[in-house]
Amino acid sequence: MSLSDSWDVLVLGLVLGSLYAVIAIGYTLVYGVLQLLNFAHSEVFMAGGFGGVIALTIVEPAVDPSGMQSAVYVLLGICAGAILGGTIAFGLEKAAYRPLRRRNAPRLVFLITAIGASFFLYNLAGKLFGRYPIAMPTMYENKTVFTVFGTRVSITQLIIVGAALVMLAAVDVIVNRTKLGSGIRAVAQDPEVASLMGVDIDKVVSRTFVLGGLLGGVAGFLFGTNLQVEYTMGFLPGITAFAAAVLGGIGNVRGAVLGGLLLGVVEAFTVEIWSDAWRYVGAFAVLVLVLMFRPTGLLGERVGRAA
């Protein structure tokens, strides 16, 4: 592998990793406030992909769109992904998890419910939209925008990384500088005392799901950008992003970003060095290795601080 090839692979990995980072935040925020591994988050991601396809199919992008038109299509897709992702996440919390919290159900019940909700949602999507890949309408011609160190960076890559950066910055501000964020952090550390300060835990939990859902939905749209969506598309990116959240230290927002980027890069290099069949082997080997030496993840001891 030549040096310029390595750069290509690194860019691929960072683009993929920035998507994993955005999805991983959904897992880590929900874990922070509820200590719940929300496996159905992968279906929120899938819903975002379908949201984009539905919106774009309705508007029918022009055959040879102008730059302005393309930008509008992309923004439309992002909004549709966010809305569908946020809505599914909101409904999921209300319908599946809140009744369990009312009954003080044991952890295991939450986990099984999460897996059940995941099955339900992706099979529902399969039933509604068909169990085959659906092409996302073409929004722009995926040209090379610029070249760094001999590596060509495409429009799609630029959109993905740009949108991911904006979302990560927004989450950082929300968690660390807003009232919702202080509620989220307080509930993550001590829900009982948080409610003594006037924090409505139900409201904070619901909004945390929505926040994670907005991000996951946008990630789902970006993942399918100029490609395709499918009812099972959530599973592998979802599991990988979940692994990224654990790798970074579940509950820790910055850890989720770090874990996502790391797993994206490891995945890209694994495919390059061995083959596509090894795609997820490298990333999960890294996960297992890190957890052997740091069971709480890379930034794990700070759970709740940044969450």
Binding site: S182, A186, Q189, E192
Partner: peptide
Amino acid sequence: HELVRFGIGHVPEGRRVFARMTILENLKM
């Protein structure tokens, strides 16, 4: 969380400050 609006402050047993927040963040909470 609603009753605090009636002017009740409860300092719980064992202090239970938000250990991973700063003093100022705790006071803002």
